[in-house]
């Protein structure tokens, strides 16, 4: 684990560099013929959306490993991934909503992607609430890990069912709801931002991991000291 502590600053600097490069590319990117300046929102929205799912995938992988091997470090990693994912999801929703206002004419549309994202956010919040509501650390870890798995199974069903609902029940009335095709000069900044956001996610994840691990160590230490004080008054 010592390697992670050494890696973290490196990751931070690389991310910063990529973000600056991405920002420069975005500022100089040509405007889209149809969507004008609003295309610049996509450079932030799409990487955030990818990361919100990627962090959930990471939490799922760690939870499976935890349930399988009962290794506490996997539980720490899973716990640390949740708030990071929630952060990305919140930005995805906010930027999607702000993008929707000029493009669709409304702040919100119940399409498959937005609905799944909203459910994902509630799921992240529920996971944090569940984690903090159970005092027994082993029980809380197990319950959260199982809940992560249930969510991982449910998310595709939600996406699929909302999509189905939209096509069978109310054909898209908003028009142009899909992500526009992006090519050439517009693609490079998107790729740079996607890589930069993977770095940002990794950095934030490492940061949360340090916090969660330190918090658990502190709790254990203070618990031990209390017992010690009780033994020798």
């Amino acid at each position: 684990m010592k390697r992670l502590a050494k890696l973290q600053p490196l990751l931070g600097w690389a991310t910063l560099l990529l973000l600056v490069a991405g920002g420069w590319l975005i500022a100089n990117a040509p405007m889209d013929f149809q969507q004008g300046n609003s295309v610049r929102i996509i450079y932030l929205h799409v990487p955030s959306a990818k990361m919100s799912l990627l962090m959930y995938l990471a939490a799922t992988a760690c939870s499976v490993m935890y349930l399988w091997k009962k290794n506490e470090s996997m539980d720490i990693l899973a716990e640390a991934a949740v708030p990071v994912g929630a952060l990305f999801t919140a930005v995805t929703l906010a930027s999607g909503s702000i993008w929707g206002k000029p493009m669709w004419g409304t702040w919100w549309a119940w399409d498959a992607r937005l609905t799944s994202m909203l459910v994902l956010l509630i799921l992240y919040v529920g996971l944090m609430a569940l984690r903090s509501a159970i005092d027994n650390p082993v029980k809380s870890a197990q319950a959260t890990a199982v809940m992560v798995l249930i969510g991982a199974v449910d998310l595709p069903i939600i996406h699929f069912s909302v999509q189905w609902w939209r096509t069978l029940h109310q054909p898209a009335s908003l028009g142009g709801g899909g992500t526009p095709r992006i090519e050439g000069a517009l693609l490079t900044p998107l790729l740079v931002m996607a890589v930069a956001f993977i770095g940002l996610g990794g950095y934030l994840w490492a940061l949360r991991t340090r916090t969660v691990a330190a918090q658990r160590q502190l709790d254990a230490l203070e618990h031990a000291e209390e017992d010690h004080d009780d033994a020798h008054p």
Binding site: Q35, S38, I41, S95
Partner: peptide, 10 residues
Amino acid sequence: LDYTPYVLAV
């Protein structure tokens, strides 16, 4: 439409 305010907001 001028999208700049929305971009800045995001």
